[in-house]
Amino acid sequence: MVAPIVVMGVSGSGKSTVGAALAQRLRVPFADADDFHPPANIAKMTAGHPLDDDDRYPWLEAIGEWLAARQAGGVMSCSALKRRYRDQMRRHRADVEFLHLAGSPEVIGRRQASRPGHFMPATLLASQFSTLEPLDPDERGIAIDVGQDIDSIIETFIAATDPDAEAENR
């Protein structure tokens, strides 16, 4: 059984782009958590209102079920901003690994501004940063700065989480 991976971070950090590239590199399925939101959540965010935990609960359950079904691995892009959200996913699959795409509000804000038409308005970025709880030491995964190119992010993640990766590169 191969552990599924959640690429996490605030909106605009590059979760979907990095997640899709990582899944392709690992030859596993990719899913974007945005596709799991019910229409009411999308309408709420489009109107500029942050989701609350009640809004997120069924969404996180659906994500956890997707992760649990990936016996041969998979990559999910999902904000996973709070520890309790990550714990909810881990209740479905305890071995989930997290790749936290970390960056400053200024860097992420510039990235977000270049995404016209996305349902998550830039005005909610501050609430995402205030909600974000970085990975705790007991959580499987690492944080990587988004200032690197995609290939470097993927290489760093694989080297840090796959003990065989270093031996394969010798």
Rank of each mutant, 00 (worst) to 15 (best):
F98N: 05
D35Q: 13
L26R: 14
V6P: 10
D87K: 07
A165E: 14
R84L: 07
L81A: 03
A21I: 06
V18G: 10
Y85I: 08
P163F: 08
A72K: 15
D55T: 11
A21N: 04
K44N: 05
S127Y: 03
A122V: 12
L135E: 05
Q88V: 01
P39C: 12
A21D: 06
H100N: 13
I142M: 04
M1A: 14
A43I: 07
L135K: 03
A68G: 14
P121H: 06
E139L: 01
L22H: 05
A167H: 13
L60E: 06
I144T: 01
Y85Q: 13
T161K: 13
F36V: 12
L125H: 05
P58R: 08
A167I: 14
A94M: 05
A31G: 05
A122N: 05
T17L: 13
R93S: 09
A102K: 08
P58M: 10
L124T: 06
G19K: 06
H92Y: 15
I153F: 03
S16F: 07
K82N: 04
E97W: 07
E155N: 11
G9Y: 03
T161I: 12
L124M: 08
A62L: 14
F98M: 10
V10A: 15
P50V: 12
S77P: 10
F129P: 02
R86F: 04
V7W: 04
S11G: 14
M45C: 11
R140L: 14
A80H: 09
M8G: 02
M1F: 07
P39N: 11
V6C: 10
Y85S: 06
L125S: 02
I5L: 07
E155G: 00
V10L: 10
A69Q: 15
T131Y: 04
S152G: 15
M89W: 04
G9M: 02
V146W: 07
V7I: 13
I144P: 02
C78E: 05
R93H: 11
A20T: 07
I144Q: 04
M89P: 03
G64T: 02
A143G: 15
D149C: 02
E139G: 02
L67G: 10
H100T: 04
D34K: 14
I158G: 00
S79P: 03
Q148S: 09
A68E: 12
P50R: 12
A160C: 00
R93Y: 03
P50T: 13
S79G: 12
F36D: 11
G74P: 10
L22S: 07
H49M: 11
Q148Y: 14
L135R: 03
H92T: 02
I154E: 08
A31C: 06
R111Q: 14
V28P: 09
I153Y: 03
G64E: 02
L67T: 09
R83T: 13
T123N: 08
D53P: 09
V18R: 11
T131K: 02
P39E: 14
V6Q: 07
R25P: 00
W59F: 09
T161L: 12
L67M: 06
I5E: 09
G147E: 12
S130R: 15
N41K: 08
G19Q: 09
A40G: 01
M89L: 15
T161P: 00
R83A: 07
R25H: 15
V107P: 00
F36Q: 10
E166K: 11
I150D: 05
P105R: 04
A23Q: 10
